[in-house]
């Protein structure tokens, strides 16, 4: 059976009287690489908080590989890897200790966790930082460790909320390349939230979120075509003004 990696239907969310998300409908297939583009305050982080059940959705439905996040959070969350906008890695622990802690939160044995950690770090050419304290790492290395951490339990859906915030150009490229490879090799579905136009992959999908509403959701190629725009920046402006 071919399950959707992520399926969101008629999702609304309010903070008090403020409507933060308005009738969100979204699907991601395994192996999809989608950029969620929006200005600050567009609702990207709130959407991620609902997908990861930090908040419960009061309306609509969120399903991860057909598991409803509200009714079956255990199975749904087991399929998600997430990198939050705000770094959530423990600075006082070593990389190995952080990765083991995360793996244990998914019920993994220590040996399997540490072996997986070494494989994932090697894949990112970072094996030498295994026993280093996170506090000693650069900003870019910390973010890459967070990506490794999100992949420890072999998730099928990877959520990245502005993963390159505060990271230099070289590390941004490394992160983007690595994530795209994951999509190809492991068929992981990726939802990458950003406010940076240059992070949009011209071969991937683009979702434009503005003031809590999805204004466009298609391949970048089609979005450029539908908006008669020469580049993503113009297309973005077209959709948020119309």
């Amino acid at each position: 059976m071919n399950h959707k990696a992520l399926s969101i239907e008629s999702l609304n969310h309010n903070f008090g009287d403020l409507k933060v998300l308005n009738e969100i409908n979204l699907t991601l297939n395994p192996g999809d690489y989608s950029i969620l583009l929006g200005l600050n305050g567009a609702g990207k982080t709130t959407l991620f908080s609902l997908i990861t059940r930090l908040y419960d959705n009061e309306t609509g439905a969120i399903e991860i590989f057909s598991y409803n996040i509200k009714k079956n959070p255990t199975k749904a969350l087991a399929n998600i890897g997430v990198v939050f906008q705000q770094p959530t890695i423990d600075l006082d622990l070593t990389v190995a200790q952080n990765l083991y802690y995360h793996a244990s939160l998914h019920g993994m044995k220590k040996k399997i966790a540490l072996d997986t950690a070494i494989i994932e770090l090697r894949r990112q050419n970072m094996k030498d930082i295994f026993h280093k304290k996170v506090r000693e790492l650069s900003g870019g290395q910390k973010r890459r460790v967070e990506i490794v951490r999100a992949l420890m339990h072999n998730p099928k859906l990877l959520l990245l909320d502005e993963p390159t915030a505060g990271v230099d150009i070289e590390n941004r490229q490394l992160i983007a390349r690595h994530v795209k490879n994951l999509c190809k090799e492991k068929k992981i579905a990726v939802l990458w939230a950003t406010h940076l136009i240059d992070e949009v992959d011209l071969k991937g999908n683009l979702i434009i979120l503005h003031k809590g509403k999805i204004m466009a959701n298609d391949s970048v190629k089609n979005i450029l075509k539908n908006s008669n725009a020469k580049n993503v920046s113009n297309a973005f402006n077209y959709f948020i003004k119309n």
């Binding site: 059940r53 930090l54 959070p73 199975k75 705000q86 959530t88 890695i89 995360h102 939160l105 019920g107």
Partner: peptide, 13 residues
Amino acid sequence: MGSMRTLLVSPFP
């Protein structure tokens, strides 16, 4: 600081 999220998104109840 945000690290509470790591715990809360674990699949365990």
